[in-house]
Computed example of a mutant assay.
Amino acid sequence: MAEAEFSMKRIGVVETCYPEKFGIPRQPGLVKSARGKVVFDEAFKNPDMIRGLEGFSHIWLVFVFHEAGEKPGRAMVRPPRLGGNERRGVFATRAPYRPNSIGLSVVELESIGEDGSLYLKGVDLVDGTPLLDVKPYIPFCDAVPDARGGFVSGVPETMEVIWGCEQPEDPEALEVIEESLAYDPRPAYKRDEEEREYGCAIAGYELRWQVRAGIATVLKCHPQQK
């Protein structure tokens, strides 16, 4: 059989509180306060297309890793859960560098706007992520309580987050910043560099922070320049 080529249409974008890749949680649902919104393209704003979706608490997002670059799909990658030192096959991971740069996340559907936008919680996507499809999460068949997780077992450990500067006045921004940093977004191979400062943008704020003795300290925090 000849090799097939497929084309897909973008149906919309996902707006999130993460304007850049660094700082995003590595899995959906870890940072429950991380909010986002699906904004459908004009061709897909037909209210009939989401009729009945309001009855589901969670949905699947099928999206494109649009910031993965033009790097070809790698056969082996270094999963963060293994410290960034061991390799596994790309099909045994959720790495963005894949033969087809397609991702899949299950998120909480918080509400549906009057314009048909979908308001989400627990997102793990960069702002502006192209969306290919939305599907309802169906508990009886999508949840497998006795499934084996391979080398990915247990919930990731979290760090304490403290402030060495003034905190945001916005309580929602404060919550998502602290939850995001608690899961340690540093590259796994740099986690022994405790004196190093890191910078990232989350929920409308530019941050500088570092980790010492397993505690993340926010050193600087100011609103992003628009």
Rank of each mutant, 00 (worst) to 15 (best):
S105Y: 12
S105T: 14
S105R: 11
V106I: 15
E108Q: 15
E108N: 13
E108T: 14
E108P: 06
L109W: 05
L109H: 05
E110R: 15
E110A: 15
E110K: 15
E110D: 15
S111Q: 14
S111G: 14
I112V: 13
I112H: 07
G113T: 06
E114A: 15
D115I: 13
D115T: 12
G116F: 13
G116R: 10
S117V: 08
S117C: 12
S117W: 11
S117Y: 08
L118I: 09
L118H: 10
L118Q: 05
L118W: 08
L118A: 09
Y119V: 08
L120Y: 03
L120I: 04
L120T: 02
K121N: 14
G122V: 02
G122K: 01
V123N: 05
V123P: 06
D124T: 04
L125V: 08
V126D: 05
D127S: 12
D127V: 07
G128D: 03
G128V: 04
T129V: 01
T129Y: 02
P130H: 04
L131E: 06
L131S: 03
L132T: 07
D133F: 10
D133H: 11
D133W: 11
D133A: 14
V134M: 11
K135I: 09
Y137K: 00
Y137F: 13
Y137M: 03
I138E: 07
I138P: 05
I138D: 03
P139S: 06
P139D: 02
P139W: 00
F140N: 06
F140L: 13
C141T: 13
D142V: 00
D142K: 00
A143W: 07
A143G: 12
A143Q: 11
V144E: 10
V144C: 07
V144P: 02
V144K: 12
P145C: 08
P145Q: 08
D146E: 14
A147E: 07
